[in-house]
C-alpha cells in the first residue's frame, strides 16, 4: 500500500510522517507520533475520549482522516501545559476531583479548553453544552462542570 506524506504542526512543533490512506488522526497521533494523550474509547464518534483541537476547533480525532490536517495545527492534552506549569484547567480538574479513572480526562480537558479559548466566562449551560460530546462513566459530570467553571473564574487570574 502506498504511503501518503503528511506534515502538520503538533503542539507547536512541525512533524512529518507517512500514513496509509484511510488512517485516522487518532491512530496517526498515537502510533506514528507517539502522543498517547488522545484515547480510543469507541472509534465511532460516540465518546469524545479522542478529542483534539485542530486550528483551535474541537474535533474527534477518531473520525478525522489524518490527511486532512496537512499544514494545520493539531493540539492535544500533551501541549497545554506551559513548561512545567499546569494549565489552569488541569489545576481546576485536580482541585475539583474531576477525574476518577482518568480515561475521559484528556478529551474533557480539550473540550473545555476549546470552550474557554473562545468564551473565557461561560455560563454553566455553556459548559454543559461544551462537554456534551464527552462521555464520563466514572466521575459524574457535576465535578467536571464545576472544574471548568472554577478554571474560568479563578484560573485566569492566577495563571
Amino acid at each position: 500500500m502506498s504511503k501518503i506524506p503528511l506534515q502538520f504542526r503538533h503542539n507547536g512543533r512541525e512533524v512529518a510522517i507517512f500514513v496509509d490512506g484511510g488512517t485516522n488522526l487518532l491512530v496517526a497521533l498515537r502510533e506514528l507520533i507517539g502522543d498517547m494523550t488522545p484515547k480510543f474509547g469507541c472509534g465511532q464518534g460516540g465518546c469524545g475520549a479522542c478529542s483534539v483541537l485542530i486550528d483551535g476547533a474541537l474535533h474527534l480525532s477518531c473520525l478525522t482522516l489524518a490527511e486532512t490536517v496537512a499544514g494545520r495545527s493539531v493540539e492535544t492534552l500533551d501541549g497545554i501545559k506551559q513548561g512545567p506549569q499546569l494549565h489552569p484547567l488541569q489545576r481546576a480538574f485536580m482541585e475539583n476531583f474531576a477525574a476518577q479513572c482518568g480515561y475521559c480526562t484528556p478529551g474533557m480537558l480539550m473540550a473545555a479548553k476549546a470552550l474557554l479559548d473562545r468564551n473565557p466566562q461561560p455560563s454553566r449551560a455553556e459548559v454543559v453544552e461544551a462537554i456534551s460530546g464527552n462521555i464520563c462513566r466514572c466521575t459524574g459530570y457535576e465535578p467536571i462542570i464545576n472544574a471548568v467553571l472554577a478554571a474560568a473564574s479563578g484560573g485566569r487570574a492566577s495563571a
Partner: peptide, 23 residues
C-alpha cells in the same frame, strides 16, 4: 478531609499509562 488521588496528576496531564499506551 479532602485527600487527593495519587494518580490525579497523571490523569490531568494525560501521562497515566493505560495498557494500550504501550508501543
Amino acid at each position: 478531609k479532602g485527600t487527593q488521588r495519587q494518580d490525579m496528576l497523571g490523569h490531568v496531564t494525560g501521562t497515566s499509562t493505560y495498557f494500550d499506551d504501550h508501543k
